[in-house]
Design a protein around this nucleic acid. Structure first.
Lengths: 218, 218
DNA sequence: AGGGATATCACCCGTTGGAGTGAGAAAAAA
DNA sequence: TTTTTTCTCACTCCAACGGGTGATATCCCT
């Protein structure tokens, strides 16, 4: 019985490369479809019912995480493995929460990929050690966060976060709060650490999505 | 007849300074109240019905622009003058759209401020030449934008904007779109110019507020 | 009295961001 | 067929950002 795989990635070349790679192990896997966007991935997942979906994050028309959430909600039996390119992207936590079965880097070796695919169909999680380590740290952090109730951000940090979300730079925030830029950076550093984010832009969208800030409509 | 002024600024010292300044011209102006937040400003505007509100932008609990919108909606007879500190902040366009009567810098001279206040009560706009110039350029730009239908952003720019809103860095965007970092910067520069924004964080919140991106809930 | 969390700030350092300028190629519109 | 728009990229330059480390003072809690 071969593993039926759906590939979702907007890079045609990457898809083709993967397919030819898969074809070298036709005893093990079979590529049953390709999607160029998140939306297409959802559609094909429904039509093809693959065993595994290899999903990129950045895609036009519905990114991979959103698509993963939808697919996992409707077809929990389909294993979704995120295949991303950047080593340090802050989507790991978001991804595991959407119910994906794995989170791998494109720098992965072909043999490792096959091994992961086998494991995934047996219900194991697909993840490199480095990712797992990051995840554990993150989870530990989150637990601290949650048991503290709400966001665990201090008042001061919330103030800084709101200003970040308003598009203010660190010097502007410093002036607004009458503190030094160093202190602003210190607060922001703690915010990013607590929320497991990579940069101020993610912090801003985080704040908006959670209504920590007044989304001045329009 | 003196001009009744409400001061809304979270910096107590600044408020007090302004008040003592105002008291030197009791023949002209009278400070009838102080607010430390946007919410308080709305409340006091209703209670006191001042002639003019001097409003800061960055404030905890409801920023000045939001408060301005509410107040202008309910009491259009009250003139609102934004008093901000940073020379180059991208809220100018947002501010004028909320119906404020003026947009001044805190670096303003006291005599100029009094002059502006007199003008405002006569229905004139309060604005420095520099601000007016920036505004005109912006309006000209906006008109180009609007007659082009929708956002005037090109496809490529929209793609970049979505990635920016997802919290991706320029190198990450470059890799995702298979173009150079220089090109990403070029696109982003054009985006910021077209939308009259200052930085990528503002671009991200812009995208979120307008639903250009899938706000992955949560 | 001691421990932990908070808020403040300094210094270093490498990377990123954004402004400015210029320019070429291809596609679309005039 | 010109002209304009779009997309691409290079190069410089400086400010801003973010990581890391460490320090001090305050306050709260036990």
């Amino acid at each position: 019985m071969t593993i039926r795989v759906l590939i979702a990635d907007d890079h045609k070349l990457f898809r083709q490369g993967l397919i030819s790679l898969m074809n070298t192990r036709q005893d093990l896997v079979e590529v049953v479809g390709e999607a160029e966007s998140g939306e297409e991935a959802i559609k094909l997942a429904e039509q093809l019912k693959p065993d595994v979906i290899l999903m990129d994050i950045y895609m036009p028309q519905g990114d991979g995480l959103q698509a993963s959430k939808v697919i996992h909600g409707r077809f929990p039996e389909i294993a979704i493995v995120i295949l991303t390119s950047s080593e340090k992207d802050g989507h790991l936590y978001e991804a595991v929460q959407t119910g994906v079965s794995g989170y791998l880097l494109k720098s992965l070796d072909a043999e490792e990929l096959f091994g992961m695919l086998e494991g995934v169909t047996r219900g194991e999680a697909a993840m490199t050690r480095a990712m797992a380590t990051r995840l554990l740290k993150g989870v530990a952090n989150r637990m601290v966060v949650e048991e503290k109730g709400e966001s665990s951000l201090t008042e001061r940090e919330l103030l800084v976060l709101r200003l970040v979300a308003s598009g203010a730079s660190n010097p502007e925030i410093a002036e607004s709060l009458s503190i030094s830029v160093n202190t602003v950076k210190s607060h922001l550093k703690n915010i990013l650490e607590k929320l497991q984010l990579d940069n101020r832009t993610q912090a801003a969208t985080y704040a908006l999505k959670r209504g920590l800030v007044s989304p001045r409509d329009k």
